[in-house]
């Protein structure tokens, strides 16, 4: 493993992660590290365990065994500290999951005011600034039901960013979108990456992976089967399974 140089650069470390649902072994020993500023895209067939892996990282799923260290602190054994860790790990969902009972501004400011005890006026000011960055400042008082999928997902990203996370997790953020809205969301993500955000993105958008990722993880049957640069993964896949997978998604 190339985790030699600077230990402080490691933001997430995943050790022998396994996950079993009943009799089904979904993760069978996942090992990897995420370094500060890295953009990792996780690819793999449906059912490979990508979502489960991602959801273990902020413990929306409790792994069966193994550990996850976030800046050296165990997420798995976090106890009362879990919420403090989650504050710093943002997550964006396939189905957006904006709070349906709150307007856009309140969606963004709810967690900062409740969890970080941020001043309401300051939080709103920051929310508006973030909305401006994704071109949705005029939607501050709209409710989620009044927005398109692309708008909802951009706001979901802003909502996560308002907590100032150290790393952002994305679980197929564009899979539920109409094709014409995929671009606007990927655009926001690409700018986020350019600003230096550490990101772990489960996605089938190979164009995005090729352009934005530093590293690509290919998951297959509950393990990371290949781990390499976009160049390595796309031009020199090692396994037959990856070649097969790529030929399916690239055509």
């Amino acid at each position: 493993m190339p985790d030699s140089l600077n230990k402080n650069d490691v933001i997430l470390e995943v050790r022998d992660l396994t996950m079993r649902f009943g009799k089904l072994d979904v993760l069978k020993g996942v090992n990897t590290v995420v370094r500060r500023g890295e953009v990792i895209v996780v690819i793999g067939a449906s059912g490979a365990g990508k979502s489960t892996f991602l959801r273990c990282l902020n413990r929306l799923e409790m792994p069966s065994s193994g550990d996850i260290l976030f800046e050296g602190e165990s997420v798995v054994h976090a106890g009362r500290n879990l919420n403090a860790l989650r504050e710093r790990i943002g997550m964006v969902f396939q189905q957006f999951n904006l709070f349906n009972n709150l307007n856009v501004l309140d969606n963004i400011t709810l967690a900062p005011t409740l969890v970080k005890k941020a001043d309401k006026a300051k939080a709103e000011e920051e929310a508006r600034a973030l909305l401006r960055r994704v071109g949705l400042e005029d939607k501050a008082s709209a409710f989620p039901a009044q927005l398109s999928g692309g708008q909802r997902q951009r706001i979901a990203i802003v909502r996560a960013l308002a907590m100032h996370p150290d790393v952002m997790l994305f679980d197929e953020p564009t899979s539920a979108l109409d094709p014409e809205m995929v671009g606007e969301v990927l655009d926001v993500m690409q700018r986020l990456a350019a600003d230096g955000m550490t990101m772990v993105v489960v996605s089938h958008e190979m164009g995005f992976a090729r352009k934005v990722a530093n590293r690509i993880l290919f998951m297959e049957d509950g393990v990371i089967a290949e781990d390499g640069s976009p160049e390595q993964i796309f031009e020199h896949p090692k396994s037959e399974r990856l070649r097969e997978f790529l030929s399916k998604v690239l055509h």
Binding site: N58, L60, N83, R86, Q95, A111, L114, V115, M163
Partner: peptide, 26 residues
């Protein structure tokens, strides 16, 4: 929708904050 709870918890909100501000109103 369970996604509402997951979104709230992923932001660091406690179970009770989630119930009080997100789930119960809906």
């Amino acid at each position: 929708d369970k996604g509402q709870t997951e979104a709230a918890r992923s932001l660091g909100m406690t179970g009770w904050q989630t119930m009080r501000h997100v789930v119960l109103p809906q």
